[in-house]
Amino acid sequence: MDFKSAAALGSCLSKDYAEDFFELLVNYQDVSASEAASRLGLHIRTAQDFLEALTGLGIVEQREVFEKKRPYYRYTLKARRITLDLDLAQVRRPRSAGDLARQVREKAHSGARFSLARSGDRIGQVSFSTGEGRERKEHKISLTDPQGLFLYHLPFPNAEPLAIGDILRKAGVEAKLSPEILDIIDVLIRHGAIDVVNRNDASREVAG
């Protein structure tokens, strides 16, 4: 099951009328949205949405019938058991070996504010301001310990950039924790707080 389907199923199951609705579906051969709504004391639109969501998930089957010339749907339960099986590996971001070789450093005048953690040996929080005037908002990100250690060792804006892997080693952060480090790096790059320096640019800059 993909994440979107799991979220839709979770949303259906979380409704406070879900259990009663399923009881109806299990015990009735088939049911229309208006019959279910009247039986459960719901608005017809609510019942219709619920049944359509279950149809989309393949849990109930929809059949068009006609009363005189007016068509409407009747719903029959198709699955007798619902299993929510979600492989979380599918939301893991694809990473390449080259990710850790990227040369990075803090970007000058980015406006990002780094606050020290209480322990004093890592960054505890990074915050950014977005918008102007009344629309100005502050976005604070509390960092995990490995992220805080990494950012503590990130080269300064006018220092020579370092490869992400080298910074991890310097900070004493295990390589297996690199996905969460790469995640915060991506966020900081998006906010313009980290510079990814091309190896050639960096050597030219240092030479200059």
Binding site: E106, A108, I123, Y152, L154, F156, P157, N158, A159, K170
Partner: peptide, 12 residues
């Protein structure tokens, strides 16, 4: 002298 490279982060 260098380009202004100020940051609020401490240096290890």
């Amino acid at each position: 002298q260098a380009q202004n490279g100020y940051t609020g982060r401490p240096l290890p």
